[in-house]
């Protein structure tokens, strides 16, 4: 019992500095992905809470940097959406790609892809988090994946559109530089400034 308590306190000590204030979590809609209070780390090594992405619509996808074929296409697909938007629309969109492979995708690997693909830091984030968080986040987004013995992953490659509160609006499995028309329309719609 005593050992359990010690363990419990040890666990709390680790977890506590990383959680959002409970009051903040309570203000997030209960069907929002942002109810998952995960800490991620971006391509510059800065930690952030998933919930800090609240406030503007977000395009989320999961990828890994060592993937040769589909993952570059995921970035192409998001860029395709980006380019189809007007300057004003682009400015309102956030983009978050989370690695499926935290063991190999360290900050340097993320940074390297970030630079190589010339991603715009005002809206793009490449991030990593714990393996357990990856599984939870994938489940919340509806992304299914499986680690293969050779270090690659099989995964569905959905781009998921969240509204400014983190609620899922729609997703697209279409890959390639030309975005799916319906998906693009949904992104545009989400980026419209609501009429006062």
């Amino acid at each position: 019992m005593k050992r359990t308590l010690v363990l419990l306190f040890a666990a709390l000590a680790v977890v506590f500095p990383q959680t959002l204030p409970a009051a903040d979590l309570q203000t997030i809609p209960e069907n929002s992905v942002y109810r998952f209070d995960a800490v991620l780390s971006d391509q510059s090594g800065n930690d952030f809470h998933l919930g800090e992405r609240r406030g503007r619509p977000l395009l989320v996808a999961m990828f890994y940097t060592s993937c040769r074929y589909v993952c570059p296409l995921i970035i192409d697909s998001v860029k395709g959406v980006e380019h189809a938007l007007s300057e004003t629309e682009r400015g309102r969109l956030g983009i978050l790609l989370v690695s499926l492979d935290p063991a190999r995708d360290d900050t340097a690997a993320l940074k390297s892809v970030f630079d190589k693909r010339k991603l715009d830091a005002t809206r793009w984030t490449l991030a990593r988090t714990s393996e357990s968080n990856v599984r939870t986040l994938a489940a919340l987004l509806g992304v299914r994946y499986r680690a293969l013995a050779d270090g690659e992953f099989n995964h569905t490659s959905a781009l998921v559109l969240l509204d400014s509160e983190g609620r899922r609006i729609t997703s697209s499995d279409a890959l390639g530089a030309t975005p799916d028309a319906k998906f693009l329309a949904a992104v545009r719609n989400a980026l419209e400034i609501p009429a006062k």
């Binding site: 074929y69 489940a139 994946y145 680690a147 690659e152 992953f153 995964h155 569905t156 490659s157």
Partner: peptide, 22 residues
């Protein structure tokens, strides 16, 4: 969620390439 993962997007680009990853 992992057991029956298959890529539904092979028709989006070169199918032979995508098979490796998908």
């Amino acid at each position: 969620a992992a057991m029956l993962v298959s890529a539904d997007n092979r028709n989006q680009a070169d199918p032979d390439l995508l098979k490796f990853c998908g």
